[in-house]
Design a protein around this nucleic acid. Structure first.
Length: 533
DNA sequence: GAACACAGCG
DNA sequence: ACGCTGTGTTCT
């Protein structure tokens, strides 16, 4: 076996050689997102597919996932990393550095088969989910989650290389304007009400309780709560309204500042994506975080000249997953008949015809439907209904509603009951998503939420894998520019937009219906110049 | 530097 | 109520 170490700064011609043979290969490496991002960004090089020992280690549930830690655990060897701290940018690489680089490659040859075996060994019994894909065939992978995540490494690397175009001029203008408006508002507040730092929860609490005599709830650490939810009782008070307004202004200002700070010469931001950023398998984004952009600000994300954005999302995906997960017939049936699930819930819980359900009742049912995903409790429902959907409930009413809800949907009742039982007996719930992603939950709320949120993550990632493969097969020039839990945003040449939009919709629904067998999955797709109007 | 509070998104 | 990240103040 020959290991080749190439210093691309010393040998620019080597790039041509790499371009020749790297793209026809499957790559094995540790944290390949990094290699793919750079090779794809600079040279347009990408692998057929990948096996990533870092991702493998994360999926196997290890706490430490550095190459060093993984080598120690699975090979029982010590990997010397001191050379990593040496100077790699100065001049020609030393022989020690070259040897270090070669050793990193050599060790992967031995690590790879062991991790592959471990992943296959923890494949769940759900054989119907055996996915026949290139990753599976090339590496002999049988674990569906590993198949999806390994294919996803390439997609995450390219996603980071692609970046997302923003409207630089508009952003900079807004930044300037908001800065002035913020300063003006703060000074105005102080001259009216005295010296209070609106961004100090402590000072705001002091001001509201001592000076205005308001009664406010406590935070979990026993301090006076001043969040918008707690202040909503007193929103008619002009000082309170002003605090809320200024804080909101500040939030938008911070977000714009974060974005502007990350704009590169070409007018794009290049966020970092953690492929497995949450315990549930969801991704996370940072620098800038493009997964929590306020909806009003999304219009500043746009397609560059001659291109279009395609924005697609799964509709009501978590509710669909939940009903399939617990096999709740009435809900499944409603989805199969294409009905409005919140109206159906309202009708069943309140015992009235679907036509008689009011707007407010539908909102209430929505709170209940989503509440169940988070492990519903009457108190929780009461607060969620009030602040999330503007529906007023007493605790007694909430209790009664929860009771009726579980009567209408007995499988959810049984599911929650069995979760509580398992927690009582074992102190934890060890479970799997519908694609076989493993998790351990130690609270009831986590146990109710993880399989649903986790299956949502499975679904999005499978959709991305399928879509990317299909787009390549059809020869479309697609750049995925953002992924937001149940949403895919991509950039395509104008003339391909309609065709790609259709392909994206089909890919998402195909992926969804591969994982959900009974409940139909639907994706909504829009072609647009901006992310959201 | 850690802990807390707050607020944006799904 | 579940999952994240960024910014600010305050405490150690």
């Amino acid at each position: 076996m020959t290991n080749l170490v190439v210093d691309l700064f010393e040998c620019p011609a080597c790039v041509e050689i790499l371009k020749q043979f790297l793209p026809q290969k499957a790559w094995v490496g540790h944290n390949l997102k990094f290699d793919i991002k750079n090779l794809y960004y600079h040279y347009g090089i990408e692998p057929i597919t990948t096996f990533d020992t870092y991702i493998a280690s994360v999926l196997l549930g290890n706490e430490r996932n550095s190459l060093q830690a993984v080598v120690e655990k699975y090979l029982g060897e010590f990997l010397d990393k001191t050379e990593q701290l040496s100077n790699w940018g100065a001049s020609q690489l030393t022989s020690n550095q070259l040897e270090y680089a070669a050793k990193d490659v050599e060790i992967l040859r031995r690590l790879f088969p062991i991790l592959l075996k471990e992943l296959n060994a923890q494949t769940s019994q759900r054989k119907e989910f055996l996915l026949k894909t290139r990753v599976a065939e090339i590496f002999g992978l049988e674990n569906p989650i590993a198949i999806v995540e390994m294919a996803m490494v390439k997609e995450t690397g390219k996603l980071e290389a692609n970046g997302f175009t923003v409207d630089v001029e508009t952003l900079k203008g807004m930044l300037k304007k908001l800065k002035l408006e913020l300063q003006r508002s703060q000074i105005n507040f102080v001259t009216k009400y005295g010296k209070v730092d609106i961004f100090s929860p402590k000072q705001v609490a002091q001001f509201l309780t001592k000076r205005l005599g308001l009664k406010l709830p406590s935070t979990k650490r026993g301090n006076v709560a001043t969040d918008d939810k707690s202040l909503s009782e007193y929103i008619d008070n002009p000082a309170v309204a002003e605090i809320v307004r200024i804080r909101k202004l500040k939030k938008v200002y911070d977000k714009i500042r974060e974005l502007v700070g990350h704009i590169r010469e070409n007018g794009r931001v290049y966020p970092e994506f953690k492929q497995i950023g949450a315990k549930t398998g969801r991704m996370s984004a940072s620098e800038p975080n493009v997964q929590n952009i306020p909806r009003d600000l999304r219009k500043i994300f746009k397609a560059p000249e001659g291109k279009k954005l395609i924005v697609a999302d799964f509709s009501q995906i978590e509710l669909r997953i939940a009903s399939e997960y617990v096999n709740e017939e009435k809900m499944i049936e409603a989805f199969q008949n294409g009905e409005d699930m919140h109206v159906v819930t309202a009708s069943l819980v309140l015992g009235k015809g679907r036509e008689e359900v009011t707007k407010e009742e539908r909102q209430l049912a929505k709170a209940m439907n989503y509440g169940l995903i988070y492990g519903i409790s009457p108190k929780g429902l009461m607060e969620y209904a009030k602040f999330g959907y503007g529906v007023d409930l007493s605790l007694e009413e909430a209790k009664d509603l929860v009771k009726r809800f579980f009567k209408a949907f007995p499988r959810f009742y049984e599911w929650h009951k069995s979760l509580r039982e398992t927690l009582r007996e074992k102190g934890k719930v060890e479970g799997e998503t519908l694609l076989g992603r493993k998790y351990i939950a130690e609270t009831f709320q986590d146990a109710a939420n993880y399989p649903i949120q986790g299956t949502g993550a499975d679904l999005l990632k499978l959709a991305v894998d399928i879509f990317s493969y299909q787009a390549q097969q059809w020869g479309f020039e697609v750049k995925i520019v953002n992924l937001v839990h149940d949403e895919i945003v991509c950039e395509v040449p104008q003339e391909q937009a309609q065709e790609v939009a259709q392909l994206l919709k089909e890919s998402m629904e195909y992926a969804g219906n591969l994982i959900l067998k009974k409940v139909p999955v639907e994706a909504e797709v829009k072609v647009s110049q901006v992310w959201e109007k």
